[in-house]
Amino acid sequence: MFTALFGSVEVGVIYAIMALGVYLSFRILDFPDLTVDGSFVTGGATAAVLIISGVNPFLATAGALVAGFLAGCVTGILHTKGKINALLSGILMMIALYSINLRIMDKPNVPLLAEETVITKISAWWQGLGFDSMMQSLLTSIGLSEYIPSTWGIFTVMFVLAFAIKKAVDLFLKTEIGLSLRAVGDNDGMVRSFSANTDWLKVLGLGIANALVAFSGALVAQYNGFSDVGMGIGMIIIGLASVIIGEAVIGNATIVRATLAVLIGAVLYRLIVTLALRAEFLETGDMKLITAVIVIFALVVPKLIEKQKAGARKKKRAAQLGSAGTNGGDQVAAARSDL
């Protein structure tokens, strides 16, 4: 049980990088970008193919970043220069990327099990530090030996990486370019009147968003030990789920807080899915359904709670006025007769 949960936190942190990308397009640019389903795989495919052809895995992962950036830029150009509706330009790019991803990989699935990847390199480096055995003896000494994950390396490195990216996004959104990017999603007519080229800002924003998504895809492919053409299906919904769950739990008053919410939301999402899959009657194939249900809940429940609260307030007020005697009613009648 613990190992499964630890595993889901580990994966959640890697997916958090993808969720940060979705946050950029969905919340900052106010652009529901479906390219994500395709660019996630593009990242995985690019990294996998480069690794197999002998490129250093870190360089290969950086290559995925570039591939994702280009994919996002194309969506942006379709939308701004081609004047195609935001949703449709994302869908078009997603479909196009499906074929492009197949071309990149040359087959639907590229296994990486025998290859040297970022994940194996991190594990090897971590092993050298001797931190795991230390944790092991520590946890065993306090009687927690059954809760020992095989390695803390992946989690720690991925956590630091995701947090560093969050920090970079926070800082970027405070720069002059970052500010204008935020304003594009807020009020793009206004930014244009302050001499910002909104078209290119949108292209840049979508490029960065999809670069993060593809980066995450490259890491996921290496973590899983394969890149598969179907691994991006429903990715946009997973990203949205992370953003929405995070915002419901942490809030989004400031950028720093909102990006933190995305990180935590991504991990929470993984935990919820892992726990849900433990139910007897659910199978692995039900995962997308579970995701959809989680997102629907996260969208509907806060509104229901708010409605409930408003109803309770109304009742309370009515009770207060009622207990003040029948004067209230008389006053209403008097006001009416004044009219």
Binding site: F172, K174, T175, E176, I177, L179, S180, F194, S195, A196
Partner: peptide, 12 residues
């Protein structure tokens, strides 16, 4: 920034 190009320095 209306009169000058935007860069990567902090806005505020």
């Amino acid at each position: 920034n209306r009169t000058k190009p935007r860069s990567l320095q902090f806005g505020v």
